[in-house]
Simulated assay, not measured.
Amino acid sequence: MSESIDVSAPAKTPRFPDGPAADPAGSHFERRIRSFQPRRSRVTTGQAEALRRLWPAWGLDIDGHCVLDLAELFGNDRPTVLEIGFGMGEATAAMAAADPETNILAVDVHTPGQGNLLNLAEARGLNNIRVGNGDAIILLREMLPPDSLAGLRVYFPDPWPKKRHHKRRLIQPEFLTLAATRLRPGALVHCATDWEPYAEQMLEVLTAHPGFANEHPGGGFAPRPDFRPRTRFEGQGLEKGHVVNDLLFRRVPHADHRDTEEQR
């Protein structure tokens, strides 16, 4: 069994001095209801080594202090897709390998997953992946220029199943309005979930939003596209009888997507 390191307990010095920060944005931005819970659980020695070695070159702490130049971040001017929540990164690495002409900015707060994805990227020679650590809302609002993204992927986000927690779900009208300002015309938004009530909410808010149009003929949910690999998490859900729904929406070319001060 691999040796592991517990990063859940506080320490006097950072476990990864050159790696992902525990709270990169700190208290610089307003308090709000978050759609995620930080998970800094046990990290294997291999994941820890990847974080120490690769984070300075391929990692990004989302601190909200600067607007990113994506061409500089990736070292090329290829289109960039933002993936919010990537788990252990297997699907992200597979998509990056299958489409080397597309950059993937993959954001999560799960330290073991960050280390695992860095390991996968190095092992497979994938130079089109960068790993973001922190709040994707701050990234979108403070650090990405308008029309800078070629796509958005949100696969199996936390469904927050209890009714009193529905306000924590990521896919809400306000989030879509913000995302629309950063997505270039024609950009593809791809969501997937195995929680059917959340899938219905996603479909409702995406359909109602003027900035997006359903790519699936006749509307409704789309079949899983070939470019989205089936993950272990998804397989476990299917074994339990869960129904997985994919949603494919296109950024409407001529919708109003002004970068207002309220959205900054």
Rank of each mutant, 00 (worst) to 15 (best):
E101S: 15
T102S: 12
T102D: 00
N103W: 02
I104N: 00
I104R: 12
V107P: 03
D108R: 00
V109F: 03
V109Q: 02
V109P: 02
V109A: 01
T111F: 05
P112Q: 04
Q114D: 01
Q114E: 13
G115Y: 03
G115H: 08
G115E: 04
L117M: 08
L118S: 00
L118G: 06
L118Y: 09
N119G: 15
N119D: 03
L120D: 02
L120R: 13
L120G: 01
L120H: 15
E122K: 09
E122Y: 04
E122M: 09
E122S: 08
A123L: 13
A123N: 13
R124L: 11
R124M: 14
R124D: 11
R124E: 11
G125W: 10
G125Y: 07
L126Y: 00
L126T: 00
L126F: 04
N127T: 13
N127C: 11
N127L: 14
N127A: 14
I129F: 08
I129S: 05
I129T: 14
R130K: 15
R130M: 12
V131K: 07
V131N: 03
G132W: 01
N133F: 07
N133G: 02
G134L: 03
D135Q: 13
D135P: 05
A136D: 03
A136V: 13
I137P: 04
I137F: 12
